[in-house]
């Protein structure tokens, strides 16, 4: 009994980063939206070529930082000056001077958390399964291969034409990817 398999998209291999970049630029120019490039390392200029908008991660980082800042100040003010006032080393119950190191560290910590986990969330990670795992050749993307995938859900996707286009752009080993 074989289950019904749906097509997720097509995958094509490219010889080098320059060709991949060129192909991405072309697809973007033609109006493709749901395509992705895959490479072992970041390629300079790829964001522009693919027409990606700016990352949202910095805003999450900022949110994390401001949260850390507020928590740091509130924590020290509340515990030191409100909940359990205690004279320590002749210092005031609360002063911005001594509150700053903890506040700073908490801002950094939550900024870092915001950056890492925000990036995870935006990338929908962790993701134990991805349709591309079905293509054995794709495994070498972490080593020395460059790939481009287009999803069938893209409005411009047409099995014949899209494959022909990828081939024309220099793509080799063009395969269907099952969902």
């Amino acid at each position: 009994m074989s289950e019904i398999k749906k097509n997720w998209g097509v995958l094509a291999e490219f010889a080098n980063p320059a060709e991949l970049l060129h192909a991405a630029q072309k697809l973007n120019d033609l109006g493709y939206k749901k395509f992705e490039t895959w490479s072992p390392f970041p390629i300079h200029g790829m964001d522009d070529a693919m027409g990606l908008s700016g990352s949202k991660v910095p805003w999450i980082t900022l949110g994390g930082g401001l949260t850390g800042l507020s928590i740091g100040l509130l924590l020290q003010w509340w515990t030191g000056a409100v909940d359990y006032p205690l004279v320590i080393a002749g210092k005031p119950y609360f002063a911005w001077q001594f509150a700053l190191p903890v506040t700073f560290e908490l801002s950094i910590l939550l900024s870092a958390f915001g950056t890492v986990f925000g990036m995870f969330a935006l990338n929908m990670m962790p993701r134990p399964y991805h349709p591309l795992d079905n293509v054995p050749a794709f495994r070498r993307v972490t080593d020395d291969k460059f790939f481009l995938s287009i999803e069938v859900s893209d409005p411009l996707f047409d099995m014949e034409k899209t494959k022909a286009l990828l081939s024309e752009l220099g793509g080799t080993g063009i395969t269907d990817v099952e969902e």
Partner: peptide, 12 residues
Amino acid sequence: TFSQYYLIWYAN
């Protein structure tokens, strides 16, 4: 700048 001020402020 803060570290210089902070250490001196704290030691007083």
